[in-house]
């Protein structure tokens, strides 16, 4: 009898929770505008955990690279080898610093050329669910970051802010299935929409069958979506197929390598369409082989 009661109780609990989930989902589907409060609060809280984890991982890496690993090497080597190892480690650290400085220089250069008000941010975590392509950055509403602000990197367009919290923000990458950006072929000025596939590549949609598009063409943002500033590199055309309809089937390789993304700029300018004309050619020239 007790066993039956237990089963019955867990069954009721299951039904109650399912009912709660359905209510929760329905509420969101009916009101698509704005960020749900629950989402914002939980993200705000957990992004602090992500920040802590990122710091912890960096700390462990530093501890390993700077102490444990060196200690192990020291035990195995003679005095000269120790000095050599220490010098090599120092060299690596210098190289890392130089690489970081170079990255930041490129970001600074980008900021100056684009004449946009931006905030530099660091990527602290990636998506918590494998089905979504997003990252968390260490800048939030306290730094002026808001919903639907464009996020760019030295290589090109990264994505847009979808959930800002006080000190962090969630950025939907342009390769996410639900992401899209107004795009233009830089050479022929043919217009289309760059749509994420959830994979490594983007699809360029709504490009006319008669438009002049070739493999290797640079695709830049058109600014028509009123999110991404005009003229920023989205990627390069890798495949063009006549789809048999009024539009062509075009695949685009993103300019940004999302697996090694570390530093980004959040565009704080309210109307990004003010971005300087001619910026696109400067950036794309830099990227051309």
């Amino acid at each position: 009898m007790a066993l039956v009661n237990l089963r019955l109780r867990s069954g009721y609990l299951f039904l109650a929770l399912m009912f709660g989930h359905i209510i929760l989902i329905s509420a969101q589907v009916n009101s698509q505008q704005g960020v749900p409060v629950l989402e914002s609060v939980i993200f705000g809280l957990f992004s602090e955990v992500q920040r802590g984890t990122a710091s912890g991982i960096t700390g462990v890496q530093r501890l390993w690279n700077g102490y444990v690993w060196l200690r192990g090497v020291r035990a195995e080597n003679e005095q000269l080898k120790q000095q050599l190892e220490a010098t090599m480690v120092e060299l690596q650290q210098q190289r890392t610093l130089a690489e970081r400085s170079h990255r930041l220089e490129r970001l600074l250069d980008l900021r100056e050329r684009a004449s946009l008000t931006t905030a530099a941010a660091e990527v602290i975590a990636s998506a918590a669910t494998p089905e979504f392509q997003s990252v968390s950055i260490d800048k939030g509403e306290d730094d002026g970051v808001g919903r639907d602000m464009a996020v760019i990197a030295a290589d090109g367009v990264v994505g847009r802010v979808v959930i800002p919290s006080a000190r962090n923000a969630k950025v939907q990458l342009i390769i996410d299935r639900n992401a899209a950006a107004g795009a233009i072929i830089e050479r022929s000025r043919a217009q289309g929409v760059a749509v994420g596939t959830g994979e490594r590549l983007l699809r360029l949609e709504y490009v006319s069958e008669v438009a002049d598009v070739a493999e290797g063409d640079v695709v830049v943002s058109s600014g028509l979506d009123r999110i991404y500033p005009k003229g920023f590199v989205i990627g390069r055309v890798t495949k063009v197929d006549p789809s048999g309809t009024a539009y062509r089937s075009i695949l685009v390789e993103p300019a940004v390598d999302f697996t090694s993304l570390e530093d980004v700029l959040v565009v704080l300018t309210p109307n990004p369409q003010r971005a300087a004309e001619g910026f696109s050619s400067a950036v794309s020239k830099e990227k051309r082989p």
Binding site: M18, H21, I25, Q28, L38, A128, T129, E131, F132
Partner: peptide, 13 residues
């Protein structure tokens, strides 16, 4: 769900 950009409750369900 809250950490993702989707609808809250789908993953929970």
């Amino acid at each position: 769900d809250a950490m993702s950009t989707g609808i809250i409750g789908v993953g929970g369900l």
